[in-house]
Write a protein that binds this DNA or RNA. Structure first.
Lengths: 193, 193, 193, 193
DNA sequence: AATGAATGAGCATTCATTCAT
DNA sequence: GATGAATGAATGCTCATTCAT
């Protein structure tokens, strides 16, 4: 299994670093190879092509991301608490790894439509976690049962994504994690008094 | 004034068409020129460079967008109604011009960081409209007065943007405009019953 | 006769200025037109094409150059004195018009082979003046009668041209005219004691 | 060391051929690559850019040129003989390689000012050889000790350069090498009987 | 005569991918 | 498995010249 050989992770981590430092368009395969300490050609023993590096990068990182969130959520039985936890962990994961935040929020979005579609596929795992929480809240009566689940998921994800992107674009100069409860409040209570 | 000469708009409209049809990266200047019915060199009488076409495109379209929304909002005196109108008009504008929706939601985001920063500048005008509505609602007591205005703006914009992007990515196969009241409900009431 | 209309000289003088300021390759027709205070298209009422401006420029300036030298030479009856006068006037003409010196010594040489052949044609008038002096000196016995006239002409012209070019390349920071007698000495006496 | 790999010289020789055949401005990198039998991109493994090919070309060829002249000169102890040898070898080197003569005398001079400055740097090695000969002659009393060394160098180089350029422009239809002694006579004895 | 908007041919360079060693 | 030299397709922009007014 290629994914377990040391160079696989080595190349993915090099890719994160190179993209964070140079930006998406200035991240040539040769730069990633150099940073990973392998020859250009070696990359192609582990990845089908450049796009495959980026998709794999996203899969690896997002996989850990979702896994961590799922574990944390399990410690709660209440949908609203689970949602707060999801927000906190989401923010925490990105706040603790600035490079990864830049890469996922800004750089990877410059990729072409096909790559973005594949990234969306990877995101589905995350959206399902949101879905489960919403589902639970709607079933146990803590959330409004007349909501369109798809729209709820889009509101939650759109809000989290937009807040993180703004934080990254503002050079991460305020605390992302401290916003968690306020954002949770907005999502659960809405704007109305 | 270059912006009033017919070829200016002709080229911008051609750019929207070409990008919608071919995608951002396959949209060569020569293709845009051909579609606009002018010579390649003519493009450069009206735009500084390729990026300038795209920024101008966004400015033109977003300018009309914001203007239309502002006019519609003025017919209401209530913050919640204004927000509903904003959502409706936002959805309507993009639903009525599928090509423009594809270009702004998907294609233009593949541009490099500089272009995206310029696009963000243009977006500020729109965000200010959201701000004004929120401000009004918080002042007249219809909205919760303890909210962080920045976060509110990000939630509203993030939700609208995510819902439109999903609609575009799903090939616009359901009605965007019919979602408006549901989205308005989610934003104003939140998830909680 | 086009050459007598005011815009003809106006354009040529603008060309000298523009080329001296911007260099040969950055001297677009539109820049020359602007400096001359005429429209781009007007240039083509007076000159066949861009190359024709440059050839005409060289003809005009070199014509005056040769004429001045011929007049000055006539005041002498001795070949060696004539040669000294030629050198002095050659240096003086270029020293008094720095822009013209830059244009003829450096910039115009970047032109393509065809233009340089035409320039050489114009130069023939000047070379004939040198020839006449040498001829006279060889006939009256003051110059060595066994010399190859062509080679003598090339030595004289090559020496003058190289000394002026060096002076221009060194930013004209020493006096060109003060070198005249020394150069005359070298040419007439050679290196040998 | 890139300069020792076979493709380095292969590309430089191709550049000489292509420029001699097509002229400076019609010598595209792709033409040079084709003539050298390599891919366009390969050029850039050996040279920084197009200008670097031309500067390297000049350095390589002029390096051999100067080296050959220095070796030949060493076989003489007399300044005048050394000068004759320099002229003979200068003429011989260019007469035996017509293409190189065309490229250095005509084509490379069409380059822009920066390239010409770099070429002048390379030329300094050659001018120093002239300087050494003149110095020697002035010290041992065979040459006039009151001469301005800079002017002498310019006269010698200007004369050689002009005679070669004329020969090239006249399609090399007479013998350059047979002129050597006559030119040497002109330079050492001057025009005066 | 004069204008200036419009034209469109032309080209250096990068970089993902391959494949002989 | 690993290497890295070699490949070659792909494109934004300039500017001399024209011609309708």
């Amino acid at each position: 299994m290629k994914k377990n050989r040391p160079k696989y992770k080595q190349i993915i981590d090099a890719a994160v670093e190179v993209i964070a430092e140079n930006g998406y368009h200035a991240s040539q395969v040769s730069k990633i190879a150099k940073k990973a300490g392998v020859a250009d050609g070696t990359i192609y023993l582990y990845f089908k092509n450049k796009e495959d590096i980026l998709v794999s990068l996203f899969q690896e990182k997002m996989g850990q991301f979702v896994e961590t969130i799922e574990q944390e959520i399990e410690t709660h039985s209440n949908a609203s608490d689970m949602l707060l936890t999801l927000i906190q962990v989401h923010y925490h994961q990105l706040a603790k790894d600035h490079q990864l935040a830049v890469v996922t929020q800004l750089e990877l979005r410059q990729s072409n439509k096909e790559l973005r579609l594949k990234i969306n596929d990877v995101l589905k795992g995350y959206l399902m976690v949101i879905d489960k929480i919403v589902e639970k809240g709607m079933n146990d009566g803590s959330f409004n049962e007349h909501m369109d689940r798809r729209l709820v998921r889009q509101m939650v994800f759109g809000t989290l994504d937009e807040t993180v992107t703004n934080w990254v674009m503002n050079d991460q100069k305020y605390s992302l994690e401290e916003q968690a409860t306020a954002v949770h409040g907005l999502i659960t209570q809405g704007l109305t008094k």
